[in-house]
């Protein structure tokens, strides 16, 4: 995400939203990293069954919150506790990202899902149940409700100038702001990895056997 965003907030008012709901399994057959956006929340968003690669216009479910025009340009998703629990599928984050979501706010997230968010520049923010409750009320009351997220200062600012601080791991913050690549970071320590590996090979040689028939 950009270090500072001011964007419309869309609400998903349901606890324990799993990654199967965020992106159903039939779309995991793709070998690509993109092309998941139209299938976000597929079973909730459309009235018919979705399949990979279909091009027909699909009937939208008018009862699904993200189909309301007021949330069309939302970049912040307001969620309930344990959002993104279940399967490790990173595709769920790709689908959110392709729909323009840069940040998610919830009392808590699934561990693997939150991890996957950071790897894709999507910021998962934990706020208290009370603060999240208040935001749900505000979003419902005010069409076009926007929040400003300032990552360097670790704050969320509401339209009525209330400032909600949030906590983020220092290194993860740095990765997001500097667009730091973790693989490059690890490779910069290649020598240390090699040294560790040779010690380990001596201590536990059975972990270095190669397998054949």
């Amino acid at each position: 995400m950009d270090p500072e965003i001011t964007a419309i907030v869309a609400p998903i008012d349901r606890i324990d939203v799993d990654t199967d709901a965020i992106l159903p399994k039939q779309f995991l057959r793709s070998i690509e990293k993109t092309g998941y956006g139209t299938y976000l929340f597929d079973e909730w968003r459309y009235l018919d069954h979705g399949e990979l690669g279909e091009t027909k216009v699909r009937p939208l479910n008018p009862d699904f919150v993200l189909n309301q025009p007021r949330y069309a340009d939302a970049e912040i998703l307001l969620c309930r506790r344990n959002f993104g629990c279940g399967s490790a599928r990173e595709h769920a984050v790709w689908a959110l990202h392709e729909n323009g979501f840069q940040a998610l706010i919830a009392p808590s997230f699934g561990d693997i899902f939150a991890n996957n968010c950071y790897k894709n520049g999507v910021l998962p923010i934990n706020l208290s149940e009370e603060d999240v409750d208040r935001l749900f009320v505000a979003v419902a009351l005010h069409p076009g409700y926007k929040l400003t997220i300032d990552l360097p200062r670790q704050t969320i600012q509401t339209p009525d100038e209330k400032v909600l601080p949030f906590v983020i791991d220092t290194f993860r913050k740095r990765c997001l702001i500097e667009n730091l690549n973790e693989i490059s970071y690890a490779l910069a320590h290649s020598q240390k990895i090699r040294e560790f590996e040779s010690r380990r090979r001596a201590e536990a040689p059975w972990l270095f056997n190669s397998f054949s028939e």
């Binding site: 990293k33 490790a88 599928r89 990173e90 595709h91 990895i193």
Partner: peptide, 20 residues
């Protein structure tokens, strides 16, 4: 433990994970 696709690439490439 389970990991996402980005971490699969990290492990393939470096045999390590950056984790807490």
């Amino acid at each position: 433990f389970g990991i996402g696709v980005s971490e699969v690439e990290a492990v393939l490439t470096t045999q390590c994970l950056l984790t807490t």
